[in-house]
């Protein structure tokens, strides 16, 4: 990971992590470099540090989440912070409280960092304007999921040693995906070539303006790729007539061995989870230890979130 070293001295200028669109290449490497150090710690027998001792982290999840929420929770705890997780899905917000009121209430408890997930795009931005602490975006609407993209980048660097010059295919429901958007911004920033592969109904308007090659045929899109990122296809997409059926989707856009063979021999398979086996990905491919790095993504996710918490928590 020599590439990262030279950016070690860079300072992060912002106090919030709202999206990849707002940060610079040097800031990205600063985060990844921090994260790299935590990978070893997370594998050791004594995982706890006191970097954030005395700091309070509030996880504010307006949308149900298992892996992101537990990943942030674990990350905070390993850094020694006091972590409080709030599931708003069935609490005050249902009684009519607005996001700003919730923010003001939490702000009165003097947290040092708020990790927020919200179904509305831009909600973390609004929150960040109203609280005195740092805000880390854990996914907002269809807009961004910056820590997911950062952990994907770390996973790729861990395996391939670099991102620059790699060819990355992002496949599936790009339209509704914040993971896809954050990854497009980040991988572009780091010098990768990006193919997006999706049926036209699941592509956002003007997606080519984000700097990607667009493919409606998966075999062409995967041709000679180093990385194949699959996205989750939500079942309700069938109802909106985005697609004719799950079986047709699997036939044309599911990751199967006959399509995977077109990617490079040493190509890696990634997925942000949770997976729909047999809908977007062949079950054997998902478990193929030579190709699939899906579990490694989860593992490095904790390290990346520790890095983000450490860096942004100190900014206020």
């Amino acid at each position: 990971m020599a590439v990262i070293k030279k950016f070690e001295a860079v300072k992060i200028s912002q106090s919030h992590l709202l999206g990849i669109q707002d940060i610079s290449v040097s800031e990205v490497f600063c985060i990844l470099n921090e994260a790299k150090a935590f990978i070893k710690l997370n594998k050791s027998t004594s995982k706890k540090t006191d970097i954030l001792r005395g700091k309070t982290q509030i996880n504010l999840f307006f949308e149900p989440s298992t892996r992101t929420q537990s990943s942030f929770e674990l990350a905070g705890k390993r850094l020694g912070a006091d972590v409080m997780s709030m599931n708003i899905v069935n609490s005050a917000i249902k009684k009519g409280e607005t996001l700003i009121d919730t923010a003001m209430t939490l702000n009165a408890m003097h947290p040092d960092v708020i990790v927020v997930r919200h179904q509305d795009s831009g909600a973390p931005n609004l929150l960040s304007q109203k609280v005195n602490c740092s805000v880390i975006n854990a996914g907002d609407g269809r807009r961004e999921h910056p820590t997911q993209a950062l952990l994907d980048a770390l996973t790729i660097i861990n395996r391939k040693g670099k991102i620059e010059g790699l060819k990355i295919a992002i496949c599936g429901d790009i339209l509704h995906s914040r993971v896809a958007r954050s990854n497009i911004y980040l991988m572009n920033m780091l010098g990768a070539e990006i193919n997006v592969v999706a049926p036209k109904t699941l592509l956002p308007h003007s997606v080519e303006r984000l700097g990607v090659n667009v493919f409606a045929e998966m075999k062409k899109g995967l041709d000679n790729c180093d990385i194949v990122m699959m996205l989750r296809l939500q079942n309700e997409r069938m109802q909106g007539s985005f697609l004719p059926s799950a079986r047709e989707y699997y036939e044309y856009f599911g990751l199967t061995p006959d399509k995977m063979i077109l990617a490079k021999k040493d190509a890696l398979i990634m997925h942000p989870g949770p997976m729909n086996r047999g809908v977007e990905i062949d079950t054997n491919l998902a478990d193929d230890i030579n190709k699939s790095v899906i579990r490694e993504q989860v593992e490095l996710g904790v390290a990346v979130r520790m890095a983000c918490l450490k860096i942004y928590c100190k900014k206020t």
Binding site: Q21, G141, P204, H205, R209, L210
Partner: peptide, 13 residues
């Protein structure tokens, strides 16, 4: 408006 801005902001167009 549906377009590049709606795609970037993650807002339905």
């Amino acid at each position: 408006n549906e377009g590049e801005i709606s795609t970037r902001l993650g807002l339905k167009g």
